[in-house]
Design a binder for these strands. Structure first.
Lengths: 348, 348
DNA sequence: CTGAAAGCGCTAACAC
DNA sequence: GTGTTAGCGCTTTCAG
């Protein structure tokens, strides 16, 4: 592999000139420039980014850590991130953690060792994580994505308010027996906030919030779990008329289980999701859901991160924008859909 | 940021010893080791991967280039890749190209400048791409993903045979007027092969293959296009009874358009997809489709790439495994689903 | 405008 | 076991 020295030799100049020709062509006499370019081309010279990065102040690498790409919500977000860095000459170093705090720690460390300029993270639980404080203390540029932690640098929706609004819609449709279905509550700050929002809406309507139905996300037999649970509630004469699922993927799984259990959506039971996955609109009935702008969340987070990075050693500007250290709350939206209807009439 | 030199000083030893303590602890006296570790911890020493990479033979970086993550088929594949490299201490450098050959070229160059150990690529059109030949000539470890190019290093299904089998199923269900719906044919080698498969199946049944209905993937008004096309075919009295969509995402969009046009699936028209997206099974009716094992494709591709990399400067083994330079064809599967039924009875 | 030289942080011979 | 040293490929003063 040709070296900058090889190019210099071939072009009959010093390596400094080659470097300049490549990075600041205007600093070099056109004639020399041409010779360097020719030499580089003939030798198929490929600048070694590692050398430059080791020397320079920045690497141009952005570390991205997400729980999984199996949930399109994160894939969408990643698309937004990509869109934001496109054209800036930066590259993405990607890691997924499967919601495992242990992996989160390792992943961040790995990214930092690679000297990324900044970090875009979705933590399983940002509230109880000491990681971000450490990062802040170390002065690492960082934005949380999806986690809504009030006074941290993050981009998300107001999960609590959004959930409340969704549940309010269910109530408005006539539902009183509404249960929230979720993955392990303790493992996700978002799920917790959404559950709070559920509680808010119930209480605002004078209803008593019910315990959440937690169902293991990693279990293969989720459908089975749902059916058992339903049967149980049925026996207790307390089958809810509506389910609020903490995310769309879960909602889809639940709907399948309902179908297999012989229940019709929305005739027998209504279902509301959260996320706003595109597929939800393609279903029939279409999935009613609380929409968060995933692509925009990713895009904004990346933009803020870049601003943060540039603000650090940027040409001037002086004071770093304080707002970058605060939460950016993007607007959510309620998507009405066929999976929510009035509860079935039946004497209680 | 603490340096290996700082650690050495603090531990009262040379930088070489620090390096050894960190990378080959067994080469260092336990007592020294302890001192080094203590020093490193106190200084919050974080080894700079760039230094190591610049020095060493390998970077541990794997370049991944995919068209988009908006299609879960690629996100799934990426999950498989992640799974395969997990625990190997490698990291992923990710780029998406939006099926743009120009971006493909740039992206590969960028990845190479970062000195990735190998490349995992999905090209828009591997057959007419000179890129892989160049890569091969340069001796870059590389595996194509999804592209099935017979004598290239790639992992995929047999798109042609798989498509033929899917279409055969439609024919078996009684369909004779089957049209393939696809994105721009010229832009994707997979779509082309699937169309060939469609032709194979039609001819095998003594039917005449129809021209593909190409619909611009990037157009927002796809639903509109589909409805216009249907109306046109209707007027010609040639409305097909079944549509074979070149991928599941397209199938979902088409189904939506059909619904909006007042057509019922599968009563009025059957739909068959290709990919085997998980969401397909959650729909009702469930999407009939040709399933490719996306996660496995990613996993195998990554494993082969790692083997290829290790084979290069690996400890021994001598001859590189020749099979890594050939296509690995994984089995596909036909998933029957509710979107395919017998054609409606009607006098012609 | 161009060149010489000093590293960026690390590893791997090679000596001791 | 440990230290010394020579770079990996590049950018960037500092002189000319």
């Amino acid at each position: 592999m040709a070296d900058i020295r090889d190019v210099a030799q071939r072009a009959g100049c010093s390596i400094a000139t080659v470097s300049r020709a490549l990075n600041s062509p205007q600093l070099v006499r056109p004639e020399t420039l041409a010779r360097v370019q020719a030499a580089a081309a003939e030798l198929k010279f490929r600048p070694n980014a590692l050398g430059r990065q080791l020397r320079g102040e920045r690497t141009g690498l952005i570390g991205v850590m997400l729980p999984t790409l199996g949930n399109p919500v994160f894939a969408d977000c990643l698309e937004g991130i990509e869109a934001a860095i496109d054209g800036t000459g930066r590259r993405l170093l990607l890691v997924t953690t499967q919601y495992d705090p242990e992996r989160e720690r390792n992943a961040i460390e790995t990214l930092l060792q690679q000297r990324v300029d900044g970090l875009l993270l979705t933590l399983a639980d940002a509230e109880h994580s000491v990681l971000i404080d450490d990062l802040a203390a170390e002065g690492v540029a960082c934005q949380l994505v999806y986690n809504d932690a009030p006074h941290r640098p993050c981009v998300s929706v107001d999960n609590r308010a959004a959930a409340a609004q969704g549940v309010a819609m269910l109530i408005e449709a006539g539902h009183r027996d509404i249960v929230m279905v979720t993955g392990a509550l303790h493992a996700s700050d978002r799920a917790k906030r959404r559950y709070l929002g559920y509680g808010d809406a119930m209480q605002a309507a004078g209803l008593t919030p019910l315990p959440a139905f937690e169902i293991d996300f990693n279990s293969g037999a989720r459908g089975e779990r749902v059916r058992e649970w339903l049967a149980q509630r049925e026996r207790d004469g307390a089958r809810p008329t509506a389910l609020f699922c903490s995310n769309d993927l879960l909602a889809l799984g639940v709907m399948r289980a309902l179908r297999e259990a012989g229940l019709r959506v929305p005739d027998d039971i209504s279902v509301l999701g959260f996320d706003g996955l595109a597929v939800g609109e393609l279903l029939s009935p279409t999935l009613a859901t609380v929409v968060q702008p995933s692509v925009e969340i990713g895009r904004h987070a990346a933009q803020r991160l870049l601003a943060q990075i540039d603000g650090r050693t940027g040409t001037a500007t002086g004071s770093p924008d304080a707002s970058l250290g605060q939460a950016l709350i993007l607007p959510h939206e309620i998507r009405r859909g066929g999976t929510v209807a009035a509860p079935p009439h039946k004497p209680r």
